[in-house]
Every structure is written in C-alpha cells, then in structure tokens.
C-alpha cells in the first residue's frame, strides 16, 4: 500500500438519486484512499516537477483565473503557513494530473460518498441524526479563510481525515450530476438538455447534506478553481475487482 493511504473495505451505499429501475444500493469494491487531502506543499512539488501545471504556465483550457490564487497571496514567503493546509483553487484537470503523477487517480462519486458515510465509530452511520446534523452544520457555515493543517482534521472510522468540515473534494466523475441548474426539476432529466429516459427519484429527500454535495458537483466545470474545493487521490487495490468510474 502506498504511504499515506488507507484501505477502504468493500461495501456500498444508497445514492441520493436512484435511477428508475436502478438498484437502490450501489456496491463499492475495496480501494485505497489518501488519508489526508492533498496539501499546498505536496501540490507545489508536483508543479515544480510538471511545470505546465504551474500557475504561470497553465493553459486557460485547464483552469480558470482563480487557479492556485492562495499562492499569490503568500508568494513572497513561499508557502509558509499554508504548506500543510489542503490545496484549494485547483481545477479538475489539475487534480487529475496530480493523482496521475502520483500513480493514483481521483476517487469516483460512489467511492467518495461511501467513505463519507462513516462516523468515528462506524463505517455507515445509517440514520444517526447527530452525525447528519454535524455535517449539515459545516455545510451551512461560511467558508473559513484559514484552513486547518490536514493532520488536525476530523478522522473517521476508516482513518480518513478531513472528509467533512474542511473543503469540498473533487471527484473523477463529477460530470455525472446531470442538472440544468434548475434544482427543483432535477429529479427528472430536462429533455431539451439531456438525452435519456425516465426519472431519478431522490431516495431520501431529507438528506440535505447529500443534496448540497450533488448541487455543488453540478455547479462546477472541469476548469473551475474554487477556494473551498480541494481533493485527495485514490487507487485500486491490486486484485480487487476494477472500479473504474
């Protein structure tokens, strides 16, 4: 196992939207996930090696102008003070390139949501209202300007730190969220915008935290760099069934 990764055992979760006729439960194979979100320091080493991803070199098709904006603020001092904080303002393209460089990949939605169900004590919290309330409360708190160092973040059952309460996290297949921006109609595909039949029904309409993640994923594009969005990498477990997105 790569250093800094933890093994997530096979399991599954109930997705927010259940496709008509689709399974109510999505199985997830065992995989490896970074224990911590990728930090500014780690990302700086990547950029030093792969210069095309440096803020001054990146092509506009791969990131918008917010790309690594936090580095500009601390530029004269290097990355002092933010080195161990989660890297934010990274685009999906850049995050993907980073994971590739590390011989890993971005986790997919199913994997991320499955791990996100874990509390401190259990891999799946079920209907624990306290846990849901805690997660929801973070979502409804304004973004903080000073992020914590990744080591200081909340740790869940799997030993994964900072999955909730620090930054939003990119996933590989973010563009599976088929929305028009018109959230009230999103349970049915907008036929003029999307090709496809049938509706997807929200399994638990009161799972506001999941709705927020879904809405967030559908709000950004592959170039978007957002100050509250970071990422971590995953990789397959050798021998486990493939979990390609």
């Amino acid at each position: 196992m790569q250093q800094g990764m933890v093994r997530i055992e096979a399991g599954g979760y109930t997705p927010l939207f259940r496709d008509e006729g689709g399974p109510p439960f999505i199985a997830v194979d065992a995989f490896l996930l970074d224990q911590y979100p990728v930090t500014n320091g780690e990302f700086a080493r990547f950029v030093a090696s792969e210069q095309r991803w440096a803020p001054q070199n990146i092509k506009p098709v791969f990131a918008d102008s917010n790309y690594l904006a936090q580095w500009r603020e601390v530029a004269p001092q290097g990355l002092e003070g933010i080195e161990n904080q989660p890297v934010t303002n990274v685009s999906w393209f850049a995050a993907r390139a980073y994971c590739d460089w590390r011989g890993k990949r971005l986790p997919n939605v199913d994997e991320w949501e499955y791990v996100a169900m874990a509390s401190e004590e259990a891999p799946t919290v079920g209907d624990d209202p306290d846990f849901q309330a805690r997660v929801l409360q973070w979502y409804s708190t304004p973004a903080i300007t000073r992020l914590p160092d990744v080591q200081d973040t909340w740790r869940n059952y799997w030993g994964v730190h900072g999955l909730h309460g620090v930054v939003w996290e990119l996933v590989n297949d973010f563009n599976t969220a088929l929305v028009s921006g018109e959230s009230r109609a999103d349970s049915e595909l907008e036929n003029s915008l999307f090709c496809g039949a049938g509706a997807a029904a929200a399994v638990d309409p009161s799972d506001y935290a999941a709705f927020m993640r879904y809405a967030f994923r559908s709000s950004y594009g592959a170039r978007s760099s957002i100050s509250s969005m970071g990422f971590r990498c995953a990789s397959d477990v050798p021998g486990a069934k493939g979990v390609n997105p």
Partner: peptide, 15 residues
C-alpha cells in the same frame, strides 16, 4: 423563461 433564470444563473463560488 425556464426556472425564472435559475437554469442560466447557476454559479459556483468565486464565479
């Protein structure tokens, strides 16, 4: 118009 503008104004943070 669709969504009263909601469809056209879906905006990520910092955008």
């Amino acid at each position: 118009g669709p969504g009263g503008g909601a469809t056209s104004s879906f905006t990520a943070p910092g955008h």
